[in-house]
């Protein structure tokens, strides 16, 4: 069988389109990360979306879709109502916009914390995570948390003015130099920063995950609260 250039070109197109269509039909084709958070697997909230799985790549729209909280509420809670296209703001930008204020962090975990309090879902925020004061006002009116949870969040809240002052100071924030454990930190990074596998496994109380797995994903998969692992690991890193 002889093949001409035209035949080869057309065949490739057919192969490509066919392959893509088949993968779409099989629900495998994805050009972006999934924006469906994991669900609670047991307890009172089994089957509901777990705010612990909100990732930095989520936009305000994604959080709205997953947790049915209006985008206006989310943006107001983080003082971003004035933005031109608030629904598309990615949560990972919080670290750039706010960063660490008075030793407290307004980042991806702040969104997890806010969503959990708003919806009355169980979630233990990471050590140092804070909310902005507008978020506390919203929670006071619309939140589903207990009074105790609200007062704890209010105690740690950061005023919007202070956070905005910090904006420029965090522009050149370098994660690798800071050796700061975040949701996306992989086991390989812990080892690269100087922790031994034994150190890590001692804190996890079980064999560590694959090098390329994030610690947070590992914790979620093994039913461990990330914050309970993050803090002692960070302490070890700080003492290196």
């Amino acid at each position: 069988m002889r093949i001409k250039a035209k035949t080869a070109g057309i065949s490739f197109f057919i192969l490509m389109l066919g392959g893509i269509l088949i993968s779409m039909a099989a629900d495998y084709w994805a050009t972006e990360g999934s924006k469906d958070p994991l669900k609670y697997t047991d307890g009172e909230f089994a089957g509901e979306n777990n705010p612990a799985d909100i990732r930095g790549s989520y936009s305000m729209d994604d959080v709205h879709n997953a947790f049915d909280i209006p985008v206006e509420t989310l943006t107001a809670a983080f003082g971003l109502s004035h933005e031109e296209n608030p629904g598309s703001i990615q949560i990972k930008l919080f670290e750039e916009i706010f960063g660490i204020v008075d030793g407290k962090e307004i980042g991806t975990d702040s969104m997890r914390y806010f969503v959990a309090l708003y919806k009355g879902l169980p979630y233990v925020a990471e050590e140092g995570t804070a909310l902005l004061k507008p978020a506390i006002s919203i929670l006071r009116k619309e939140g589903s948390m207990t009074d105790e949870e609200l007062s704890l969040a209010a105690e740690n809240a950061v005023s919007l003015e202070t956070a905005e002052i910090n904006e420029t100071a965090t522009e050149d924030h370098d994660d690798t130099v800071l050796m700061e454990i975040k949701g996306k930190t992989m086991f390989s990074e812990l080892y690269d920063w100087g922790l031994s596998k034994e150190d890590v496994e001692k804190i996890l109380s079980m064999p560590a995950g694959a090098r390329t797995m994030s610690v947070r994903d590992f914790c979620i998969a093994n039913g461990i609260e990330f914050s309970t692992v993050k803090e002692p690991l960070q302490e070890l890193l700080d003492n290196l």
Partner: peptide, 8 residues
């Protein structure tokens, strides 16, 4: 990297 890369 996403699943589309594996398909391609």
């Amino acid at each position: 990297i996403h699943e589309s890369s594996v398909v391609l």
